[in-house]
Write a protein that binds this DNA or RNA. Structure first.
Length: 490
RNA sequence: GCGGCUAUCGUUCAAUGGUAGGACAUCGGUUUGUGGCACCGAGAAUCUGGGUUCGAUUCCCAGUAGUCGCCCCA
């Protein structure tokens, strides 16, 4: 071991020993003299509180975000950029208009739309009271706010259907896991004003199209219908009496659900409940004629579109506002299913929160899950354009000149990289090489005085000195040769 | 909200009841102003708080975070 290193190490060790020695002494002292210890502590407290203002006593900063929140780092942005790109293209092509609504809404809006008794409202809402005593919540999903905006701004007078697209973070106080965060991003597509099942099919096709464009494979839709206000009550009654007869075979949660929301028992994953649920009366067989036709037509459209789907009579979903069509988007992998998104029809929502009766359908996509899935299947991501030119500089005068040169290049929309903070030419060229640029411009003291620049071709290693005003042309010439060559190869 | 597992440099993988080590990455250098390869060097970590111990990064407890299963969903 070199002497320097060894010396450093022993210094480190000495520091450590010293510290642990102190610590040890403190502990020992406290143990042997508990009273003295407290007295000493009091004394130091007094001293510090006397010298320092109370408000200045700061808690150490925890270098981590709150639970369930996370950074989307530069390294993942290639996926997010691609997602944004595809979403933007898709919403415009399908005739949607973008809308952005606040992160915070009155808590009542969510209670009335999503429904009391749902997990989202009962357990997962981030609610608080403002200084003005307003009871508000962070949005747990996007549809409620959009529906509110739809009514408030009188969008019902617009030509139907009204198609709205939105994307942004939503908040649910839940136990985090991979692909499940307390803050997560959703993209939301909603169509208002038409009750034709063709729109149900189209919105599912849109979801399918977005995911396949992102390179996600093994997509499957789970579809079900839960009826409308007219036929659901009858069905729920029937379901309730069925479950009532098997009550002792249900899990505890489901016994509660029997009172509040018997539909959700169908969704329970407990073995015994699943068994009971399989033989439960199915919605499909107890619908009114309108709902039955709606579902039948939807399935025909889906067949026509060749969208992979499965009818899942157990699917009821956790938000109360759904009517008729409900669906989830799964990706299947090694026998595991993961939900990437879901949606359905909500024909009564607008009326329920104070608008005129307006049929609607929509779906939401969980973007973290989509990004995760893209990573897993190594889907194509968005790669930003890379600079092909690097500016290296030596000396103060040259630094000034190169700053100027950078601006000139930027104006002619040539992407340029630099490392102005670096001193030696060697390290700058190393950087240039690492970045994989094709041309490096070198300005030293001499060039700066002569108003010239050395243009170095990084592939061939050759270089020439050119007058500064001709640099752009020379670079364009070098860079233009390349694409033609590549074009031929491809 | 319930249960299981985990926690070491930026990343990744070691090791240890007694000075925590490597690889990758980062930064600097290998004779004047020229990259890739090679070589040399530097900085950088035991999640937090308690307990046991002469001594804890290691053992125990709690907290925090991550992760898996359940619940739920996106």
């Amino acid at each position: 071991m070199p002497r320097k290193k060894a010396a450093k190490k022993s210094r480190k060790a000495a520091v450590k020993r010293k510290l642990s020695g102190k610590k040890y002494a403190r502990k020992k002292f406290a143990k042997k003299n508990p009273r003295k210890r407290t007295a000493a502590a009091k004394a130091t407290n007094k001293k510090s509180s006397g010298a320092v203002n109370q408000s200045q006593v700061v808690e150490p900063i925890l270098l981590q975000p709150p639970r369930g929140m996370k950074d989307i780092l530069p390294g993942e942005q290639e996926y997010w950029n691609r997602i944004r790109q595809v979403l933007d293209k898709s919403y415009m092509r399908y005739g949607f208009q973008r809308i952005d609504t606040p992160l915070v809404e009155f808590t009542n809006l969510f209670i009335r739309s999503i429904g009391e008794g749902t997990d989202v409202v009962d357990k997962e809402l981030y609610s608080f009271t403002t200084k003005g005593k307003d009871r508000v919540s962070l949005r747990p999903e996007l549809t409620a706010g959009i529906a509110r905006a739809y009514i408030q701004h009188g969008m019902n007078v617009l030509p139907k259907p009204i198609k709205l697209f939105s994307v942004g973070p939503v908040y649910r106080y839940d136990r985090p896991q991979e692909g499940r965060y307390r803050e997560h991003w959703q993209a939301n597509f909603d169509i208002f004003g038409e009750d034709d099942p063709v729109l149900d099919a189209q919105i599912m096709q849109l979801a399918y199209q977005v995911l396949t464009s992102l390179g996600i494979k093994n997509i499957q839709f789970q579809v079900n219908t839960i009826g409308c206000a007219d036929c659901r009550d009858g069905y729920v009654d029937m379901l309730t009496s069925y479950f009532e007869s098997k009550k002792n075979k249900l899990c505890r949660t489901c016994k509660d659900r029997l009172k509040n929301n018997p539909l959700r028992i169908l969704d329970c994953k407990e073995d015994k409940c699943v068994q009971v649920a399989t033989n439960a009366p199915q919605t499909v067989n107890h619908l009114c004629e309108g709902c039955r036709n709606h579902f039948k037509n939807l399935l025909e459209y889906l067949d026509e579109l060749e969208i992979p789907y499965m009818i899942n009579p157990q699917l009821v979903r956790g938000l109360d506002y759904y009517t008729r069509t409900v669906f989830e988007i799964w990706t299947l992998e090694d026998g595991k299913k993961k939900s990437l998104g879901g949606g359905g029809r909500y024909d009564n929502l607008i009326a329920n929160i104070g608008g005129e009766p307006t049929p609607a359908i929509g779906f939401g996509l969980g973007l973290e899950r989509v990004a995760l899935e893209m990573k897993k299947v190594k889907a194509k991501s968005y790669e930003p354009p890379k600079p092909k030119v690097f500016i290296a500089q030596l000396g103060n005068l040259a630094k000034k000149k190169s700053l100027n040169l950078f601006a000139t290049m930027e104006k002619s929309s040539i992407l340029v990289a630099e490392s102005f903070g670096r001193g030696s030419l060697k390290s700058q060229l190393r950087m240039a090489n690492k970045l994989g640029v094709e041309v490096t411009l070198i300005i030293g003291q001499k060039e700066a005085l002569d108003e010239t620049v050395i243009v170095k071709n990084m592939t061939t290693g050759t270089q020439e000195t050119v007058p500064i005003e001709k640099v752009i042309n020379v670079i364009k010439k070098i860079l233009k040769i390349k694409p033609v060559f590549n074009g031929k190869k491809n």
